[in-house]
Structures are given as C-alpha cells and as structure tokens.
Design a protein around this nucleic acid. Structure first.
Lengths: 202, 202
DNA sequence: ACCTGAACACCGTTCAAGT
DNA sequence: ACCTGAACACCGTTCAAGT
C-alpha cells in the first residue's frame, strides 16, 4: 500500500514540491491535504504540522511559483517595444503554467500574476521619461491591461465564438458571420496595448 | 428542526431561487446541495431529481442571472460616449452582484459576464460606421477590455498597493511613493477604454 | 520535534425503496 | 412523478496520545 511514497525527512519545502507536482499534473482541484499526505508517505495531520493549513499552503505555493518564474528581460529599442516584449513574455509564461491563475486566485493573491513583471516594467516606464504620479498611473494601467488579458484569455472557452449571435437584431450580416469565426486573441491584446501605450508614453 | 423551510411544491425554478438567495447572501462556497435541500425543506436526493447535479444547477444559475440583468440602454451622443456608457453600466451591475463572477467562472461560462452587453455593443459598433471583419474585431476588443477590467477589479485586493515596492531598484523615489497610495481603478478603466476606442473607431 | 489514530462536521452523488 | 434512507467515497481540521 505504499504506492510510490518517498518517506525521507518531510520538510515544508518537500511538501510544497509535492503540492506543486500534483497541481501541475492534475490541477488545483486534485490538491487535497489527504492526497498530499499520501504522496509524501505520511498521515494527514503531519502535513498540517509542516505547513499549517490549506490556505497557508497555497500562500507558500504562490511564493514558490512567483520566484520560480524569475526575472524577465525586455527586448527592443523603443520603450513601446520593450514594454510590450515584457507583457508578451509574462503572457507566454502564464500560458505555460495555467495553474498559476487558479492557485493565486484561490490564495487570495490575484496580483501575484504579474509580480515578476512589476519591477522591470517600472524601470521601463521611468526610462521612457515618466516620473512620479504619471509613472505610477502608467505602470498600473499597463499592469491592468496585462492582468485583464491574462484572466480573460484563461477564462474564455477556446473557441471564443459568441453566444446566441443569431438571435441578435443587428443589421450587418457580415458582422454576424465574422462573429462565428474564432479569433487570434493575441491580436486583440497587441492592438489594445499599442493603443494605451501610445497614449501613455510621451 | 424545520428551520424556516418553505415546503410548497418544489420545482426547478424554486430550487434556483433558493440557490440564488444563498449565493447572494453567503457567497458561492456556501451553496451545497445538502444546504440547498435543507433550505427547501426536502432531502438531498430531491434536489438532484429537479436540477440534475451541481454543475447543471450552476449553469441554470448563470442563465437566470444573465437574463435578470436585462438590457442596458446606451446614453450619449457620440459612439465613444455611448459605448463607454454601456461598459460602465455593466461594470456597475457586476459590482452590485459580485457573486456573478464566481458563479459563471465555476460554471465554465466565463463569457457570461458580458452577455448583457454584447448585443447592444454590436449595434453601437455598426452605428459608428464599422462593418464585417472590422466591426467584429472592434466588438471583441471592447469586450476583452471590459471583461478584463471586471476580472482584475474583482480579484485585486481593495487597497491595490503593490507588493514589495521598497525592495525595487528603481531610480525614481516619487514613483515609489506614489505606488504606496491606492488608486481610483475606474480612472484606469476609463483611460484605457478611451485609448482603444480612439484607435478603433473611424 | 515529529508523527499517529480517531474523531467531527462537512461535501457530491447514487440507488433501491417507498407513495 | 416525486421523495426518502442509506450508503460510498471523498473533503478540511483538531487533538490527545504516542515516540
């Protein structure tokens, strides 16, 4: 009955390792304290001893994930290019690990999605010539743009066709037809980002 | 032990009523099939008989909510004004019923957030002079803008100050100071929407 | 310091059995 | 057609007791 339990010294780090493993492979719903204990070859209360409770475990998980993601290097010559390169890199990273969204949301740490990007974007914004209040507003607007897109991208069904279009009273039949085809979501993101950056940067 | 059970004829509609009531008052986590049965003065399997299972119940809940929200009337003279009035109205509506986000997300119907707005926005976009492919792109971009903001607005802690700003290596101390103050999120939304609309509309 | 068995109070879901 | 009791297989969490 030992399944493939590992039974070395259990530490908080090993618990987080195991939890991350489960979440990566089977999603957040599969992560239970009991299941985690079984994976570690230990009984449930032991897990509690090491990481507190589920809530605290998720918090530690978020911490681990955000430090794993690491720094992102901007590329490009103009500030616009450099900033959007950072945003697209974060987007790609999150798509590679879709579970981060569920984990940080459940942990009540929604902002965690863009922690890796914040500091480097701040530098780019000041490098673009913005200061103080203006720079702060620009930074937050960019972060909202990025965070919003990540969340919608994640939450929307992949076919992304719209609901009940045929019952709409819209004059244009071409529009109706177009709404049945699915879209390259990234086009929408790039377009929006371009628009706000053009308005934000001097 | 009857708490305040209602015990008239149980129907799917009454089940949804009761479910909505629970979710509105105590949030989605409080909605369990057993709890729901108790509220209706009936045993758990009866609920299953009427609404299938939890997943189906959530789907019905989403349907009810979106039809409850009803049509939104655009106000303003220019297309820009009319479109942003619709977006702000949806935003206000969702803030009045924050549970809709959790419910539609859990039901796997993330797009449901903006169903009430879709058709009227489609009309406004064509009224602004866009057709076919262009109109579809504009509509989707506006919807993404709205949906993204709603989700970030919902997920971000109300203080919205950024994490670990003090350890950043940014030159501008004014920026750092500004990031400690909290912001009017709506300013960010209005600003972004203005930027994309200016770019989208002819 | 670390682990356990046992319990409490919950879940979603199914199903044979009742009226 | 509608409801029930009873069960199965899960949860998170606590706690006295062991080493």
């Amino acid at each position: 009955m030992s399944s493939d339990a590992v039974r070395d010294a259990v530490t908080p780090e090993r618990v987080i390792d195991a939890a991350l493993q489960i979440v990566e492979v089977e999603g957040l719903d599969a992560l239970s304290m009991r299941r985690l204990a079984a994976t570690l070859g230990v009984r449930t209360p032991s897990v509690y001893w090491h990481v507190g409770n589920r809530q605290e475990l998720l918090a530690k998980l978020v911490e681990r994930i955000t430090e794993d993601v690491g720094r992102i290097r901007p590329v490009g010559r103009t500030p616009e290019q450099r900033i959007s390169s950072v945003c697209l890199a974060v987007l790609a990273e999150v798509r590679r690990r879709p579970y981060v969204i569920a984990v940080s949301a459940t942990a009540g740490r929604g902002e965690a999605i863009f922690t890796p990007a914040q500091e480097v974007l701040a530098r780019e914004v000041t490098a673009a010539g913005l200061h103080g209040r203006e720079a702060a507003f620009a930074l937050r607007t960019i972060l909202f743009q990025l965070g919003g897109f990540i969340l919608v991208d994640h939450g929307v069904a992949s076919d992304s066709s719209l609901h009940g279009v045929d019952r709409w009273e819209v004059a244009d039949p071409d529009l109706r037809a177009e709404l049945h085809t699915s879209v390259d979501l990234d086009d929408i993101f790039r377009y929006s980002l371009e628009a706000v950056l053009a308005k934000l940067l001097p």
